[in-house]
Write a protein that binds this DNA or RNA. Sequence first.
RNA 1: GCCGAAGUGGCGGAAUUGGUAGACGCGCUGGACUCAAAAUCCAGUGGGGCUCAAACCUCGUGCCGGUUCGAGUCCGGCCUUCGGUACCA
Length: 817
Amino acid sequence: MKYPFQEIEAKWQKFWEEKQVYKTDLTNTDKKHYCLVMFIYPSGAKMHIGHWYNYGPTDSYARYKKLKGFNVFEPMGYDAFGLPAENYAIKTGIHPHDSTMKNINDIREMVKRMGAMYDWDAELMTCEPKYYKWNQWLFLQLYKNGLAYRKNAPVNWCTSCHTVLAREQVLNDGTCERCNSTVIQKNLTQWFFKITDYAEELLDGLNKIDWPEKTKTMQLNWIGKSLGAEVDFKVSGTDDQIKVFTTRPDTLFGATYMVLAPEHPLVDKLTASELKQKVEEYKDSIKLMTEIDRTSTVKEKTGVFTGAYAINPVTNKNIPIWIADYVLMTYGTGAIMAVPGQDERDWEFAEKFNLPIIRTVQPPEGFEGKAFLEDGPAINSDFLNGLYVDDAKKKIIEWLEHQGIGKHTINYRLRDWLISRQRYWGTPIPIIHCDSCGEVPVPEEQLPVVLPYHVNFKPDGGSPLASNEEFMNVKCSKCGTDAKRDADTMDTFVDSSWYYLRYLNPDYEGGMFDTKLANAWTSVDTYVGGAEHAVMHLLYARFIHKFLRDIKLVNSDEPFQKLIHQGTITNLGAKMSKSKGNVVDPNQFIHEYGSDVFRMYLMFMGPYDLGGDWSDKGIVGVDRFVQRTYSMFETNKDLAKKNKAFEKYDLAQLNDVEKGIYRKVNYTLDKINVELEHFRFNTAVAALMELLNEMKNLNECKPEIQLYSLERFSIMLAPLAPHLAEECWSLLGKEKSIFENPIWFEIDPIALTQDSITIVVQINGKVRAKIDMAVDIQEPEVKSLVFADDKVKSYTDGKQIVKEIYVPNKIYNIVVR
RNA sequence: GCCGAAGUGGCGGAAUUGGUAGACGCGCUGGACUCAAAAUCCAGUGGGGCUCAAACCUCGUGCCGGUUCGAGUCCGGCCUUCGGUACCA
């Protein structure tokens, strides 16, 4: 009979739900395992292949852990706020709340059909007041601690989303991370979270977590720590000073000019009147460029002279002050001392504008390059001469500090996290703006500031909340006079920075989350999600977690101990997207083959972290495996009712077929263990297929050996194809379901030892013979067996034997001449 | 440009610390079953050579070179693809 997956998958899903098999007892923390996938963003009503690829295999891992005796917590929820729902509202008039709720309901049904062991009691959605209330509370704690502040600053403005973006949310081609349209610079007053206060700790923490190296590297580069010095330069003929940051203070004697960012506040003041027009023109030309254009490495250097001079503090010489777009106001101090001798960009600039070049590090003989960046003895540097870079740095910093014109500094590339959004569908910022009191935090007992339902969504660039007067007009909670609420909402990355803590009790009213549970259950043991979150979500969550630790709400340093990225499933070589029209709908395959086959096929396709191009070519192979498995168990129906299998068998008591199967069962147990532990699902599935092939002759075994093998087969199958495995287990006549009463079988180590082995004989490195012999026999005996072989003889007779290498139980290599 | 990963049959992909390259699956070929087809089952399947056939020989893991008794795996130099990043002072 063909495996009736519709019926059986529905049956077991119902069973699991009714028996509450996946309800995790969070009070039992004995062998806890928090297995988390990135929650779902319900912008569309459908689950696509990428979701399946993320959730299916991760669920298999969670199930494996459960069978191994872990108390596994595997929750699912909805990252429900965000722009797409709001843009959809603008287009169709359907309110974001309504479309989101509908999407969530549809998605929940689809996720359930997948058959994952989510604890649905832990389900949460970020758009509910009972969730976002705590975003607001978090905001207030950050505010109290000086980590949430408002400033007027140039910000990234997405021309299509009509909102500001954090720097991380601008892609490297200058487009918006969400919608891919152009991002421009604007000056606005916005709320920021001071993530830079945690820069050092965010770096340190990377050493303590089990994350992919490339992800850690990305965070490392994003934070971009560099050691150097700040040096004050006097502006010649004035009292002004310009502070520069440099990583190479040792090259100070070679600083032959200075460059300011065009936006630098001193530019207007410094510029000589006859050059004002040129400088203004240059500044205007920069305004039109995005930050990305400006920072293109291929672009030729541009800049203009201001007419002013600074004084090099070590040489006391006047050096010209230029402005150029390659100096950014947003990094360091917005000003540099240019040392063309030791910096490629400065060299290029100096060459183009005929500025002096002085080498202060001696390049090796024969050096033909331009700027010399390597280590070497200092030259042309007075009291530094002869010192190598590190020593020269130390000495000059001492000197600068002694003179009171500079100091050792650490600079970071990381900037504060801009969290204001001029959008509706998000968490209202809990601040009241009062004419007399300024910014006033909403008192905690008045939270949540509920997001009103009725607003005007018109995408005119203003915050939609501003259109709701009832919402906007409040009394100042300090002085009681008329005041206004903040009309902006928070970046949705705030929501996702702590949701894993809320899952533990999403209805908790005593605080942001239940600290007792959080201390017991976090860090999350295994976190699985896309690599596209390497710097944004994963950095924000680490920051927030550390802050929550500092205010004593959690006791761990890091939110996610082990991180796994699933690869991307592409179609026809491109990422699946509606606009490309290459989206593959998983439902089609669920209908035709069922959820188990589909998830197993996704796992079988290849290495989990590599992903790959979609093809349905091989899915029939997995389907055949499922059919053959099912019929094997049907043939042996009720076997467990009449028989009992021992934990172990003595190989000597088994016939050849039994021995073969017994060995393979144990070998597979071992293999599956290792493969699943490392998220190598493809080889785990292959191992089970091999076992099934071996079990072809199961009918030649005693019933108890049949049962021994089938029991183990079902349990190994259970993480990968849970519905099928439950069905097989119950076909055997087992009373308790696998996941109701999780078990995992121990390996019989004796079955893993071979008694005979094939020795490969190589002659001059080429395989010439394969000889079977008993395992672990002594080398002289091996040698005599090898040289007794006709083929070996034919290759060695009459030749001089130069060398013999024996690798026990593997290879016998003979070198002849 | 820089950083990282990858490149293995017709295809997806296997291969402990260097030790039988191609597990497992798809596809294909042949056979069984069938009136026939589908499904299923059995056998074969990297290329080339020599064979009735087997045995056997030979070439083969992106390219060139090296280390080694032995290299998909290690080293040096390239090429291609895919991610990440972009003048960070």
